[in-house]
Write a protein that binds this DNA or RNA. Structure first.
Lengths: 173, 173
DNA sequence: ATTACTGCAAAGCATTTGCAAATGC
DNA sequence: GCATTTGCAAATGCTTTGCAGTAAT
């Protein structure tokens, strides 16, 4: 399912988010190195420990280029040479969010989704009520508007999230 | 805790959302009537039944003027003259969202929050990482920007949600 | 009369947590 | 060596669900 998406995108894409994802996939190895360096700095600063498990989880999380669920990632790491326990996955994902490598998404269903943000294009989502599809869109003006609102309220923005619910083009009869 | 907020707002407020809430509280009785009429129409259209429980829950949900959790509302309705069971509360809240009387908020913690939207001023939220406070802000330009994005993507908006995470004025040292 | 809804209590299930063993510093 | 982290498995707790009884049409 990931693979299919990868293949179809290989052909050509005019969607800026898809293009960005393509780029991210191609540059995965180097990006993970940079991300790891940043995460290590974050951990040191917190005087937390730099561990194998944390490296494995960062790597696995950044390798996913869509929204994923904590339990899915935990399941995928529950066996194999780099196995990490479920509890550790949950604990580490929280750290990665804190460090700004991932963002949490809590809209689609009851379960939390995560999405890589490290060196990724800032984008927002439209979610189709009918088919559940996530449509990604880029709108710098939106971000600017939010920055302005924060200034007005003396609010120090760490990150923001915009979601639109409704019916997508394909589902509109 | 609700009461305190109500009292302090009674004095005076320059916050448009707080003012709107004041107005809503004053006009609660009539607003519930209009909301009920609209909900009845919604139910009829769905050929669902117009029941006592549904009236009670609509009333209770609109009486709350902040974000509330399903389990809190369920608890508050678990005894008293108008008691309704937990299951029914959950089931009805979903209907009220579908009917557009409430909106779901899934950001703060794992639990879903609800917020009345019927005849309320459209607003967005900033959530403080430190104190967890919800700051409400109104920004019509933001809504317009989103409308424009939807037009571009042929997306039929039912509703949207904007949240900003970060540190509020009071918590910024 | 029929059919949907409610109440109840049990089940579901992602996430969290306590504790002993392991690992980083 | 000491403190943090991990793995494990059990607990947690909100939410959902099945079913028998009740209420709406």
């Amino acid at each position: 399912m990931h693979e299919n998406a990868a293949i179809s995108e290989t052909v050509l894409s005019t969607n800026p988010v898809a293009l960005d994802r393509q780029r991210a996939r191609m540059q995965h190895a180097e990006a993970v190195e940079r991300a790891w360096a940043q995460f290590v700095a974050f951990l040191r600063d917190k005087s937390a420990r730099v561990t194998q498990s944390r490296k494995i989880i960062l790597d696995a999380a950044l390798a996913r280029d869509d929204h994923f669920r904590a339990d899915q990632l935990a399941a995928s790491l529950s066996s194999g040479p780099n196995r990490v326990s479920r509890g550790t996955v949950y604990r580490t994902l929280a750290l990665l969010v804190e460090a700004g490598m991932l963002r949490e998404i809590r809209d689609a269903d009851t379960h939390v989704h995560y999405e890589p943000t490290f060196e990724r294009l800032r984008h927002e989502h439209m979610i189709c009520d009918q088919c559940g599809q996530f449509i990604e869109f880029v709108d710098p003006a939106l971000s600017r508007q939010i920055v302005a609102a924060c200034r007005q309220y003396n609010f120090n923005q760490r990150m923001h999230r915009v979601v639109v619910f409704g019916t997508c083009r394909d589902c509109a009869s």
